[in-house]
Write a protein that binds this DNA or RNA. Structure first.
Lengths: 334, 334
DNA sequence: TGAAAAAATGAATGCGTATTCATTTTCACA
DNA sequence: TGTGAAAATGAATACGCATTCATTTTTTCA
C-alpha cells in the first residue's frame, strides 16, 4: 500500500546485496548467481519495485519510444494503420507517442517536445509537417520514416504504395470498360498521394486521347466527397465514372449520387483507393485499390528499427504495389 | 550538422555562465538577467540544444506523460475519442502513450512497462484490463480514470454516459411508437455499457408487460451486427424493431436487413448508440443516442489533471446524459 | 589437492538536469 | 556616496540507474 517509489538501492538493502547486482538482474545481465537473483526478485516483489525507465535511458541512451504523427486519425485507413503499428512496435518493446495534426500543420512546439523525450524514431504518415521540422528530427539523430508519403529529396526513408502505377492501372481498367467521361475527386493538392494518383490517371487518359476529365478538389473526407459529387453531377450530367482519391471520399460520392437519384454502377461508376473495411459493406460494395497495409507497416517498422541500430544506414525508398479489388461499383459500358 | 546531443553544461560553457543558470532559463525560472538569458538562448540556438526530458523528470518527478489504453481503435467512436483526448492533452503539454488491446486482455507486461515510464495518469476506455492491473497502477501512485466504463467498487474515477437511463428513454420512445416485437444486439456481455443498456431496455419492456425481446450477442463490430441481424430475422420474422449496442453494430444490422430484402424503417426500425459520424451518412441516416463526447473527454481530462495535482482527491464518478438523435430508421407503427 | 580460469560481486562513477544554499552583484533610496 | 535589500549567480548535490574496474568467490582440470 506504499505510495513510495522504491529504488534499486532499496531492493539491494532488503536483499542484502549491492545496488549493482540488483541492476544486473533487472537489466537482464546474466552474471548473477541464481541464489542472489531469487533473493533480489523476492525483495523487489515485496516492495513493489519497478525500474525507472527514465533513469535507465539516461545511461543506455535508449528510450524505446517511437513517435507516430498522423494527420487525421478519424480516417479509418489511419485507424487501421495505427492499430497495426501499435501491434508491431509493442511486440518489439517499443512504445508509441501519438501525435495527431488534425488537418493542421504540426505545431513547432510539439516537435520540440518530442525531441526532448529523445524518441528513437518517428513515423510520419501523411501529416503536414514542415521540412524544417523534419530536418530538426534528423539533426538530433532521430530516425525519420515517412509512411504513405515521400519527399523529392532523398533525405528520409519512405514507404508507400506506388500510387502512380495504381492510378494508371485503374484508369486503364476504366477506359477499357468503355467509360467516356471521367472525374477525379482529389485529396489535398499538396500531398504526394494526391499528386501521383492524379498524374497516373491523367496520363492514361491522354495516351488514349480522352479529354473528358473533370477534377474536383476534396480533402479525404466523406463530406468533401459528397459535396464534390454534387458539384460534378450538376455541372456535367454526362460523367459516367468517378475516380476518388480515397475510399472515404468514394463513400461520400456514392451517397451524393444516390441522393440525386442516380444509380451505381448503372449510371455512374465509382472507384476508391485504400480498401478500408467499409468498402466491402453491402451498402457500398466499392471497387477500390487495396494497399498492402500490413506489408507496408512491416516494412516501415523494419526500416526504422534497422536505422535505429545502424546510424550509417542509408535512407531507403520502398514502393509497394497493391492490387485492384473488384466489387460492384463499376459497370462495363461497351 | 552535429549528431551530438549537447547538454546544458555545453551551453553554459559557450555562453560563459554556469550550468545552473542555463537550467534556470529552460525551466522558466525568472531569476535570470536579461543579458545572460539572451546569451544563453543564443548559445543554445547555435548548438541546437534541447533539454533532456528524462533527466528533468528524474528530479521534478513529473513526466508529462499520460497513458491511454483502448480496446478497439478501429471503432470510429474511439478514433474520435482518441483525437479529442490528444487535442486536449496536447494543449496542456501532456503527451499520450497509446496502447490498444485489440479485443484481448492487455498484457501484464504492457502495464508493467507503462509503470516504468512513470506516466502520471492513465485513461482506460472500455479496454479489457484485469483489476489486478488497475490495482497496480494505483499502488504506484498513477492516477486512473475510466472512460465510458466503470467498476462496482469505487476505486477509480470514472466518466461515462448514463447508459441505463438512455436505454430506458430509447425503449420508451420505441414502445410509444407502437413497436411490438423487439430485439437487442449486444456488445460483449462483460462490459458495463452492454449490461446497463440491456438492463434499461429490458426494464421498460417489463413495465409495459412486453415479453417479445430477443437478445443476440455481438461484439461492437459491423460484422457481428450483420450476423446477428441475419440470425434474428430468420429466427423470428415478426421483429419490428432492433436496438443495437452501438452504431457500428447498427450499420451492420441495417445492411443485413436490406440484404434480406426488407426495408428500414418500413419493415424494421433500427436504433443505434454513440452517434458516430457514419450515422448521419445518407445511406444509413440512423436514429441513435448521442453521447456528449467532447464534454465527456473534457470532464475526464479535468478529473485526471486534478487528481495528478492533488493526491488526496477522492475518486469521482461522473455520469452524463446525452440525447436521442432522431433520423430515419424508426417508424411509427400505430 | 592446488593453480589457473571463470564467474560473481561491490565500490565508484556519470548520464543531464533542477534545486538548495552561500556568495556576489545590482538596485533603490537616503 | 553609502547602506541595506533584492536580485542574480555558481558550486554542490541528488534524482535512479547501468557500467567499469578491481576484488572476491567459485569452478575447472591437471
Amino acid at each position: 500500500m506504499e505510495k513510495k517509489n522504491y529504488t534499486s538501492q532499496d531492493v539491494a538493502e532488503v536483499a542484502g546485496v549491492s545496488q549493482s547486482t540488483v541492476s544486473r538482474v533487472f537489466a537482464g545481465n546474466t552474471n548473477v548467481s541464481e541464489k542472489k537473483r531469487k533473493k533480489i526478485l523476492a525483495a523487489a516483489e515485496k516492495l513493489g519495485y519497478k525500474p525507472n525507465a527514465h533513469a535507465r535511458s539516461l545511461i543506455t541512451r535508449k528510450t524505446m519510444m517511437i513517435g507516430i504523427v498522423m494527420r487525421n486519425i478519424r480516417n479509418p485507413f489511419y485507424s487501421a494503420v495505427l492499430e497495426i503499428f501499435h501491434n508491431r512496435f509493442s511486440a518489439l518493446g517499443y512504445h508509441l507517442i501519438f501525435i495527431n495534426s488534425e488537418n493542421e500543420e504540426i505545431q513547432e512546439s510539439e516537435v520540440t517536445q518530442l525531441l526532448e523525450y529523445n524518441i528513437e524514431g518517428v513515423i510520419i504518415t501523411d501529416a503536414l509537417l514542415s521540412s524544417s521540422a523534419s530536418e530538426k528530427f534528423k539533426r538530433h539523430g532521430i530516425v525519420v520514416v515517412l509512411f504513405n508519403r515521400y519527399t523529392e529529396q532523398l533525405e528520409s526513408s519512405a514507404v508507400f504504395c506506388d500510387n502512380y502505377l495504381a492510378a494508371k492501372q485503374i484508369a486503364t481498367y476504366l477506359v477499357e470498360l468503355g467509360h467516356q467521361s471521367f472525374a477525379f475527386v482529389s485529396g489535398p493538392s499538396d500531398t504526394s498521394t494526391t499528386i501521383d494518383r492524379l498524374k497516373g490517371f491523367k496520363e492514361v487518359l491522354q495516351e488514349r486521347s480522352i479529354t473528358n476529365l473533370m477534377i474536383e478538389p476534396g480533402n479525404y473526407t466523406f463530406e468533401s466527397g459528397f459535396k464534390a459529387a454534387q458539384e460534378l453531377m450538376t455541372r456535367n450530367k454526362n460523367i459516367d465514372c468517378i475516380f476518388c482519391g480515397n475510399d472515404i471520399i468514394a463513400l461520400g460520392v456514392m451517397d451524393a449520387i444516390r441522393t440525386i437519384g442516380l444509380r451505381i454502377p448503372e449510371d455512374v461508376s465509382v472507384v476508391g483507393f485504400d480498401n478500408i473495411r467499409m468498402a466491402e459493406w453491402p451498402s457500398y460494395s466499392l471497387t477500390t485499390w487495396e494497399q498492402p497495409l500490413e506489408e507496408m507497416v512491416d516494412t516501415t517498422v523494419e526500416l526504422l528499427v534497422n536505422e535505429i541500430g545502424d546510424t550509417n544506414a542509408e535512407p531507403q525508398i520502398v514502393m509497394m504495389k497493391g492490387h485492384l479489388v473488384v466489387r460492384n461499383t463499376v459497370k462495363s459500358r461497351k
